[in-house]
Structures are given as C-alpha cells and as structure tokens.
Design a binder for these strands. Structure first.
Lengths: 118, 118
DNA sequence: CGGGTAGTACTACGTCGCGTAGAGGGCAGA
DNA sequence: TCTGCCCTCTACGCGACGTAGTACTACCCG
C-alpha cells in the first residue's frame, strides 16, 4: 500500500464519513473551505480509484465513488505495515503496547480478550 | 515524523543493527550490494541527521553516526501515527487487535498484562 | 433546434522528497 | 609538498501529489 497525500486524505475522510457513494460534484461541495476546481476533485478521485482506495459505479453520466475499505481497516493495515518494517515484530509489538495510553491499552486488552473467547 | 525512503531505511537498518557509531565510510562498506558513491552515503546520513533520526559526534575529521532511537521505538511511533489518522481511535485499535495473527495477539496480551501489574 | 450545463478523459505544470553524485576545500601523513 | 580522505555545498532526474485547463459529449430548457 502507499500513503496518501493531503488532499487525498481529506477526500477519503469525506467519503469514509458518508454511507452512500458520492459524485465528484458532491464531494467538491463538501470541501467547502478550499476553493478547488471541479477537475481537481475529479483527478484526485480518479487517482484514488486507480490506487484501489475507491470503487466507482456509473450513475447516468456521472460516477459515484465509495471507499473500498473502512477507515479502520485502512488504519489497521498501516499499523501492520509499520510493524513489517522491523525484523523483530514481537519487540515492536511489546514496545507499542507499552506506549499506548492507559485507556487505549484497556481497549486493546478488551478486544484481545473477546478474540480469545471466540 | 516523516516516513523514510528506500536508501534511508537501508542505512537506518545498518545503524540499528550496530551497537557502536559508524562513520560514513563504514556504512558505505556495509552496503556492499549497491555500488554507491561515498558522497551519496554522506548525503543520506546528513539528511537523516537533519531529520532527527541520527545523532553524530566528531571523530577526528570524520563524523560517527548513531541512531537517535531504537527501531522498535520508531516502529511504535509509526503505528501510533497511523492511529492518529482516524477520528475513532478505539475502533481502529479494536480492528488492529482483530487483525494481528494469533501468536502476535498473544505477545500483545502478555505485554499488556505486564503493564497492568506494574 | 440551439445553447448553457454538467460530466468525463486527457494532458500539463509546479513543487517537493529522495536517490544519486560531482566540485571544491581542508587537514594529515608519506 | 603531494596524495588521499572526509566534509560541505550544489545539483539533477524522477516520481508523487496538488492543482487545473482543454476538449468532447450528453441533457435539459426555452
């Protein structure tokens, strides 16, 4: 996988927050703070599709874009990728566990416990 | 923090594997497979230092480079950074916990348990 | 039927990070 | 003093990304 740029991430955030596929125009309208040309949004949507982050389906003349995976899945994958960078995965995992804050350690613990019970 | 490029990562790997600071020449000699100009290695070492990944101390005319942090710390930080990308950290954490393989879940569980006992 | 509108595809340009390395300067030993 | 090692500075090419223009097509409205 590859990382995302600034605008790419912004657009993914918009699509992740949506539960229905959006057209380029609709996405553009949701980036209100920046005054981007419509073609800019289309180009980025196109690149994201090419990279596999989005899927698109026809809707008349327009395309509707939807995320290929949930944000959580994406984040989890990024984390695993970081983990792959090391020779000693267990050391890195241990280190990670020690680094997360208390409440988050609790969340992890709980998730792991539930895993075990299944 | 920022990610590292290909050669940058290679060099960090070399330095992480060492327990004593190395000079540019020594690092270059350890990248035997690629035939790099000495200045290339120096440039990259310099950039890594500028980025805060390395510290360097004088040794005669030469510099000796050493990692600023352990690889595990780096990986853990990358993972936390990925985690920061999401609005819902707990969901991403849960997802992550579900995604790691069985043995690694065990490692995480153990690390978290030890944390709790302190 | 003709024009504005919306939508697409293709192309392009500037910037930045990174791999790569040359030019030039200084110091130390033969 | 000559030679070589090491440093600093500068630079070039490429690919990624932000940004957008141009050109073509399909509709709807009057």
């Amino acid at each position: 996988m590859k990382g995302l740029g600034e605008l790419e991430r912004t657009i993914m955030d918009i699509l992740w927050a949506q539960n229905a596929p959006l057209t380029a125009r609709e996405v553009g309208r949701l980036i209100a703070d920046r005054d981007l040309a419509p073609t800019t949004v289309m180009t980025v949507l196109d690149r994201l599709t090419r990279k596999g982050f989005l899927t698109r389906t026809r809707d008349g003349r327009a395309w509707r874009y939807a995320p290929g995976a949930s944000r959580d899945a994406y984040v989890a994958e990024l984390m695993l990728e970081a983990l792959d960078m090391t020779g000693d995965r267990s050391a890195a995992l241990t280190r990670f566990a020690q680094t997360v804050s208390g409440p988050e350690a609790e969340i992890l613990r709980k998730a792991l416990t539930e895993l075990e019970e299944e």
